[in-house]
Design a binder for these strands. Structure first.
Lengths: 129, 129
DNA sequence: CAGTATCCTAGCCGATACTG
DNA sequence: CAGTATCGGCTAGGATACTG
């Protein structure tokens, strides 16, 4: 055994779970991936993270800013101008999250096929009733 | 610009979101990381994925099985004996998810510090009321 | 041991309205 | 433009009880 490092250090693992709760939510990885393209304004983000509501974009950005993954720069002009970008730590996360997103893209068809097959089997089982 | 591949292919991105909804939930990445250690029985998983309820372990495993990421092997004995393991596709995801978990472990302290600092600044702002 | 089946609730998240 | 504030539906997910 001893397959990977994750198998040890249960205390660390418990701490890591807290972090996962933070970044493995519905939007964070997505926002980070988009910010990986470079600095963006609020409305740009809203447009590019498709499906996100204004509220959730605000909430997500605040969380990421609080965790030191995103920095927020306000220009005191009218109308307001606010820029978001990844911090250095944010960029280290970017590599990992992009890899995950890419994996998702690459395997979507395979997954869809697996689902169809699974649902088929389930239906056949039920048809024996 | 043209920072990364994720910046293109908005249609792909939209599809990838569906997948993210599936694996970026509270437990899936965690279960996959634990299964990365090797084949496990239901109760073993329940013990090692700390905090998961019986119900959520079942739900999560069914979802992963349906998506072709985990395979389930039942031995027709009494008491029941069921083994879970990663499929080949599951193992390709493992690398990515482990990288993410590891990142979380490595940056927990930095994040906690960022949070404390952020909350401090917020408190100071409010103290001007 | 490895599940189902119910019930129930905290809180996520979207919709809408308002502001500097 | 870039938010904040409020309300409410919905559902993820926990607790509990039961079974082959």
């Amino acid at each position: 055994m001893q397959a990977n490092r994750f198998s040890q250090a249960s205390a660390e693992r418990c701490r890591a779970r807290r972090l996962l709760d933070r970044i493995a939510d519905k939007w964070s990885l997505y926002v980070i991936a988009v910010l990986g393209q470079g600095t963006k304004r609020f409305t740009e983000l809203k447009r590019e993270v498709d499906g996100i509501s204004q509220r959730m974009l605000t909430v997500t950005l605040r969380g990421l800013e609080r965790d030191g993954l995103v920095s927020r720069r306000v220009y005191a002009v009218m109308p307001p101008h606010v820029e978001y970008s990844l911090t250095e730590m944010g960029r280290t996360l970017l590599d990992r999250s992009t890899a995950l997103l890419r994996w998702a893209e690459e395997h979507l068809d395979e997954i869809d096929a697996a689902r169809a097959s699974y649902d088929d089997r389930a239906k056949n089982v039920r048809s024996f009733d």
